[in-house]
Amino acid sequence: MCEKKQSTLDRIMAEGKKEFLDKGFKDASLRNIVKSAGVTTGAFYGYFSDKKALFEALVDPAVKGFKEQFIAVHKAFEQLPRDVKMRVAYDDSSPHQKELITYIYDHFDAFKLLISCAEGTAYADFINSLVETEVAATLDFIRDTGCDALISGRASPEMLHILSSAYFAAVFEIVVHDMPKSAADNYIENIRIFFTAGWKSILYL
């Protein structure tokens, strides 16, 4: 791509991000984006079919990267022998949570768009998609380790969904409230301690 075209694209994406962060996807104005970027509507359509396509370009790389890491963590855990799973399920030394939080801060604006501005797009379901993955992994863990949480009635699939939803909602408060990274690290550690205690009481680990 020539320098002029790249510059035009960069301006459109920069002004689009500002407009979406300021007004949210639903209320964002394509006219304002084009005007602020100093380009014509025709120039905009040379890059994006509509504002949904622009929003996707701003958030999709971060979504894909996060989900790839998230799923990779679960797949690696699935491959562990049963006794190892039991031992490391809530291993305090695991680096994975910290890596995911670092990833969020490395792409903070994209996650701000995802968590606070995505209503009206397919990305509004982002957190729920993580919850579904987490619940499926927890059910696999219960089955693979012989845990009796479901049989005994201490847990149910619905309860697992509610607890997982609460966990991810708590995690992404760091984005909602624009927490500095140092404050977020401390907050997330406290969230981990809180939820770990609850899960251990349910799963008897």
Results as ranks from 00 to 15, higher is better:
residue 1 M to R: 15
residue 3 E to L: 09
residue 4 K to P: 13
residue 5 K to M: 13
residue 6 Q to Y: 06
residue 6 Q to N: 10
residue 7 S to Q: 10
residue 8 T to E: 15
residue 9 L to F: 07
residue 10 D to P: 09
residue 10 D to S: 14
residue 10 D to N: 14
residue 11 R to Q: 06
residue 11 R to M: 02
residue 12 I to G: 06
residue 17 K to R: 14
residue 19 E to I: 00
residue 22 D to F: 02
residue 23 K to D: 11
residue 26 K to Y: 10
residue 28 A to D: 14
residue 31 R to M: 09
residue 32 N to Q: 11
residue 32 N to F: 07
residue 35 K to S: 15
residue 40 T to Y: 03
residue 41 T to M: 11
residue 44 F to H: 01
residue 44 F to P: 01
residue 45 Y to M: 00
residue 45 Y to G: 08
residue 47 Y to S: 12
residue 50 D to T: 07
residue 51 K to M: 02
residue 52 K to L: 06
residue 53 A to E: 10
residue 56 E to S: 14
residue 59 V to M: 01
residue 62 A to M: 03
residue 65 G to I: 02
residue 65 G to F: 04
residue 70 F to N: 12
residue 70 F to T: 06
residue 71 I to V: 02
residue 73 V to G: 03
residue 76 A to N: 12
residue 78 E to W: 10
residue 78 E to C: 12
residue 80 L to E: 05
residue 81 P to A: 00
residue 81 P to Q: 02
residue 82 R to D: 14
residue 83 D to Q: 02
residue 83 D to N: 00
residue 84 V to Q: 13
residue 84 V to E: 05
residue 85 K to G: 07
residue 85 K to S: 08
residue 86 M to K: 11
residue 86 M to F: 06
residue 90 Y to E: 00
residue 93 S to F: 01
residue 96 H to V: 13
residue 96 H to T: 15
residue 101 I to E: 02
residue 103 Y to S: 04
residue 107 H to S: 10
residue 107 H to I: 00
residue 110 A to G: 14
residue 115 I to C: 04
residue 115 I to A: 04
residue 116 S to G: 15
residue 118 A to L: 13
residue 122 A to K: 14
residue 122 A to E: 15
residue 126 F to P: 04
residue 127 I to W: 12
residue 127 I to V: 13
residue 128 N to V: 01
residue 129 S to A: 10
residue 129 S to G: 13
residue 129 S to M: 09
residue 130 L to E: 11
residue 134 E to L: 08
residue 135 V to R: 03
residue 136 A to L: 00
residue 137 A to K: 11
residue 138 T to C: 01
residue 140 D to G: 05
residue 141 F to G: 04
residue 142 I to H: 00
residue 142 I to R: 01
residue 143 R to P: 13
residue 144 D to R: 08
residue 144 D to C: 09
residue 146 G to F: 08
residue 146 G to Q: 07
residue 148 D to W: 05
residue 151 I to G: 08
residue 152 S to F: 12
residue 155 A to D: 03
residue 155 A to F: 01
residue 156 S to E: 11
residue 158 E to T: 10
residue 159 M to W: 10
residue 161 H to I: 02
residue 162 I to Y: 13
residue 164 S to P: 04
residue 164 S to R: 03
residue 165 S to W: 14
residue 166 A to M: 11
residue 166 A to I: 05
residue 166 A to P: 10
residue 167 Y to F: 05
residue 168 F to G: 04
residue 169 A to E: 12
residue 170 A to Y: 05
residue 170 A to K: 09
residue 171 V to G: 03
residue 172 F to I: 14
residue 175 V to I: 00
residue 175 V to A: 03
residue 176 V to S: 06
residue 176 V to H: 12
residue 179 M to P: 05
residue 179 M to F: 05
residue 180 P to Q: 04
residue 181 K to E: 15
residue 183 A to Q: 12
residue 183 A to F: 11
residue 184 A to F: 02
residue 184 A to G: 03
residue 186 N to L: 11
residue 188 I to Q: 09
residue 193 I to D: 11
residue 193 I to M: 13
residue 193 I to Q: 10
residue 196 T to H: 13
residue 198 G to Q: 07
residue 198 G to E: 14
residue 200 K to D: 13
residue 201 S to E: 05
